[in-house]
Design a protein around this nucleic acid. Structure first.
Lengths: 191, 191
DNA sequence: ATTATCTATAGATCTATAGATAATGC
DNA sequence: ATTATCTATAGATCTATAGATAATGC
């Protein structure tokens, strides 16, 4: 039952990718190691050869998810040079993002789980949030660097809060209104 | 072991209040019925005489938490007639709120759990969110009712997102910067 | 010989229920 | 007689580990 070194590395990769999706969909406590490994096509016991604990996997999975999001932002910004921040906001605040947490922002899906996790998980998140704020500040409007940074922080916070709120309410019209209102306020024509 | 009708009602009340705190601190899956009842000073088996399921308790607990927050906002606004929205924002975006999720906003602490819960839980949340948006819109600046409502939605989203983000990062300076930046942007002197 | 994965299981915990108990409320 | 709470437990699930297996990599 042994596999090649390369196959083992691919298996580890698949565990991380599977976890990144299932944790975002079900929460950290909402999916067990056994089900997670089964979804990845492996057996339960093999998990601990790849990771020392379930929480260690959370750290890698959240890191992976945030890196993926960061890459997506760069591509969106490059495609919309006239309003890079607005392009990110429209994508982030789309119905598709709201309805597919497994593929979306890890902060909005797992923020509370991250807040309860150990330092290793939080430090990985912190480094990526800092990077994402730098990216947003780089394209944000503002007379000074401080203004741009404030705009970046406000934009990121508004996007996360709108998505969390839009997912928590069952009234579709209200949910849509929240997404659309915040997206509109973040267009370059906005404030 | 039977108690008076009134005592039983108080016991139920204590279960809801205990749950409102423990769910916000630990997440819905992070605290069991047995520990919850023990914290409330009762035994595990008695739970199902008061609630049909753990999720039914989540609905009541979240409703209770949101009602408490709404009451707090009204008091804050009355005490700061010059900038009611700013007063709410400063309170919501305080270090004390960030560091005490068990006593704070149920959306920021339990948003993802609510998004995964059944219709009954989400409908209770939706009604309260609608009320809170009305309250915020009532004091928001703006030329028209639609402007006020947009301002209310933007304010609520920014507050929730800033708190979720501030709790997820381990760098205290960054966490404080997020809270302060968003709070400043929501003062009446702001935009 | 090493090691990636497997099966099997330990030990703890989870939600929910059954039936006993004992005090209230008629 | 009713009922709020209790003890005890069913049955499922959880994380983590031990030891076997079998193919790779030396």
């Amino acid at each position: 039952m042994k596999v090649t070194r390369e196959q083992a590395a691919q298996n580890r990769e698949r565990i991380v990718e599977t976890a990144a999706r299932l944790f975002r969909e079900n929460g950290f406590d909402g999916i067990g190691v056994a089900d997670l490994m089964k979804t990845a096509g492996l057996t339960h016991g093999g998990f601990y050869g790849h990771f020392p604990s379930k929480e260690a996997l959370l750290g890698e999975a959240v890191g992976r998810a945030l890196d993926g999001a960061g890459g997506g932002w760069q591509a969106l910004m490059a495609a919309h040079p006239g309003d890079p921040l607005g392009a990110v906001a429209r994508s982030y605040l789309s119905g598709a993002h709201r309805d597919n947490p497994g593929l979306g922002c890890a902060i909005s899906a797992l923020g509370a789980d991250i807040a309860r996790a150990g330092p290793a998980v939080q430090e990985g998140v912190t480094a990526r949030v800092a990077d994402q704020l730098d990216v947003l500040a780089g394209v944000a409007p503002g007379a000074t660097a401080a203004d741009k940074r404030r705009k970046a922080i406000g934009t990121y916070a508004a996007m996360i809060g709108a998505l969390v709120l839009a997912r928590a309410v069952s009234d579709r019209a209200l949910s849509d209104e929240i997404l659309e209102t915040v997206a509109a306020s973040l267009q370059s024509a906005g404030k």
